[in-house]
Nucleic acid binder design. Structure first.
Length: 561
RNA sequence: GGCGAGGUAGCUCAGUUGGUUAGAGCGUCGGAUUCAUAACCCGGAGGCCGAGAGUUCAAAUCUCUCCCUCGCUACCA
């Protein structure tokens, strides 16, 4: 039996813009919490991410800004990589798809599939922009919607009436590159006949079985994931082109096929694999150990990415052979902002790099607010007012306050020396029992991807601490019963120490501060060491500070500008 | 249009397989307290569970119709 390994991925962000809180709440923060928890249990986990740097959108943007595609992706790769690091999203590797290692990995993957006869080749007519000598995706053709008359409908969809369109239906079709009317031109592509895989996919999705073996428990998969996959499978899978006519991407590794690149789904997800290779190389590991046998592959994504991670990528992995399929794809729904959808073009967003500047040192406040209202089962709403309230009444009022009162009392009564624990009464014992149950309770919820509820339980441990102090009133007993006071504070300090360990996945910066304040070592999640009597804790300092109305008003004023 | 996921307290959200008075946090109101960042602790009020119909002894939960939000709709990534 090999040691259990966990391979956790977050969707590769597209490197044509900065990150906002919607991205964070959906795919990065939940994964980071999950991974930090596994690490805290000293399990073998690798956390994979990187920039997705290919595709037409990047070439278009480059053209518009008079830059090279590589300059665009360099800019956002570096910005996003730094934002993640500063925010405490602690990837083991943040790779990029423009790296040669990735190109080779993707090409080898394609060649292997091709040699196994996984693709069919087909020639078809596609729209083409003569001035730019480029084939056009439906998305890059605009025209008048035949249904509602809206004059800026896309070739695949009208934004106004929501109808699904095909570019040939558009009236007055125009290329978004040149503005000219596109012509039709023949081109050859490699197609993946997904319908050939419908049977095993259905059994895998619905029953968690593959090749007669139980792979996962479908009841642990979210309803939106299973629902959407079934919808696709039951509606009849079709073939899908796996190559594109473009010069910015991973070249199709076949001689004489210039100007063709691999489609994003033979490119970006394989980025998870190439990133693992890079990490393994840098850390003296075997990358394949994290992709086969009983390795657990877990993809954290947003709901827009479900079929790609739960249908297309699994097909590719299975046909290639030698890989595990995902154990779970905990897709999140979307986060709204002040009741409206996030929008880059309207600047209706909170940009991570701006938050980090405006709220320096307060990463954990946003982590807390986003996890508290994470869109785990439905779209949720982030408001600045909620953010402020969660900080001021929950983090400052409940969490920070508990730690402060414990550390202040210890310093005031015993100059920071941890008092001894004497005889326990039944209430002490029940509080300790409750405390001891939290690692398993919170951990179990994290393993079920119920991070919001897990965070609620963390706060319940803080509440237990506050209530214990309120009920026992050590500040009154100090004059009459020194021993009793010592026992109470000893127990309160154990709770604080538990909080140091259990808060780490959610609030890593706070956990670190708390560790320094208590002057203790990190403990393993399920073997938390108690703080010994006579140990010295440091002076009290505030874990969180109040956020005033003015700051919130400033942030509100930035929206939509 | 088709399909998927949602619509539950003022706000943000939980509610397994139908089963006593529908839950939590925040907010609000009242009380208690002072070790603590006027914080903590205790208690109360507050809900026709999107609308309507049906099945059932019993529906937030199952069925049907309708309304609203979001996603997917196969060449956006």
């Amino acid at each position: 039996m090999t040691k259990k390994r966990y391979t956790v991925t977050s969707a590769l962000p597209y490197a044509n813009g900065p990150l906002h809180i919607g991205h964070i709440a959906g795919a990065y923060l939940p994964a980071d919490i999950y991974v930090r928890y596994r690490r805290s249990k000293q399990q073998d986990v690798v956390f994979i991410c990187g920039s997705d740097e290919h595709g037409a959108a990047i070439t278009l943007r480059a053209k518009k800004e008079g830059m090279e595609p590589q300059e665009i992706v360099d800019k956002y790769h570096n910005l996003n990589k730094k934002s993640f690091a500063d925010f405490g999203i602690d990837f083991d590797v943040y790779h990029r798809t423009s790296d040669p290692l990735h190109h080779k990995t993707s090409q080898d993957f394609f060649s292997e599939l091709n040699s196994k006869g996984a693709f069919t080749q087909k020639t078809s007519e596609q729209f083409y922009d003569e001035e730019h000598s480029q084939f056009l995706a439906d998305r890059y053709i605009m025209g008048t919607c035949p249904k509602c008359g809206y004059d800026s409908a896309y070739g695949d969809q009208c934004e106004k009436c929501g109808s699904a369109l095909s570019p040939s239906e558009l009236l007055n079709p125009k290329s978004t590159l040149s503005g000219n009317e596109p012509i039709k031109k023949e081109t050859k592509h490699w197609y993946l006949p997904m319908q050939d895989h419908a049977d095993w996919l259905k059994n895998w999705i619905e029953n968690g079985e593959l090749d007669g073996e139980k792979q996962h428990d479908p009841s642990q998969w979210r309803s939106q994931v299973i629902g959407q996959c079934k919808s696709w499978i039951d509606g009849g899978l079709r073939e899908r082109a796996m190559t594109r006519d473009l010069d910015w991407g991973v070249k199709v590794p076949i001689e004489g096929e210039d100007g063709k690149v691999l489609y994003v789904w033979l490119d970006a997800p394989i980025g998870y694999i190439s990133a693992t290779k890079q990490w393994a190389k840098d850390n003296g590991k075997e990358w394949i150990d994290y992709w086969q046998n009983d390795a657990e592959l877990i993809h954290f994504i947003g709901k827009d990415n479900i079929v790609f991670h739960a249908i297309i990528f699994p097909i590719l992995l299975k046909v290639h052979g030698g890989f595990v399929l995902p154990k779970n794809v905990p897709a999140n729904e979307f986060l709204n902002l002040e009741g409206q959808k996030l929008s880059t073009s309207r600047n209706w967003a909170i940009w991570l790099h701006e938050y980090l500047k405006d709220f320096e040192g307060q990463q954990d406040v946003l982590r807390y607010a986003l996890c508290s209202t994470a869109p785990e089962s439905k779209d949720t709403d982030f408001t600045w007012s909620d953010f402020q309230t969660r900080n001021n009444s929950e983090l400052v009022g409940i969490f920070g306050n508990f730690i402060n009162r414990v550390v202040v009392l210890t310093n005031k009564y015993w100059e920071g020396k941890v008092p001894e624990r004497h005889e326990l009464d039944s209430y002490d014992q029940s509080v300790l029992d409750e405390m001891d149950a939290f690692p398993e309770k919170i951990g179990g919820l994290i393993e079920q991807y119920k991070l919001r509820e897990a965070l609620t339980e963390l706060m319940n441990l803080v509440r237990l601490g506050n209530k214990y102090l309120a009920d026992t009133e050590p500040w009154k007993l100090k004059k009459t019963d020194e021993k009793r006071t010592e026992t109470i504070l000893n127990i309160a300090l154990q709770i604080a120490n538990h909080l140091m360990v259990l808060s780490e996945p959610f609030l890593p910066f706070t956990s670190h501060k708390l560790q320094e304040m208590l002057n203790v070592q990190k403990s393993c999640w399920d073997k938390i060491k108690s703080i010994d009597a006579a140990h010295h804790v440091g002076k009290a300092s505030l874990l969180f500070s109040k956020i005033e109305d003015e700051l919130i008003e400033q942030q509100m004023a930035k929206l939509g500008k």
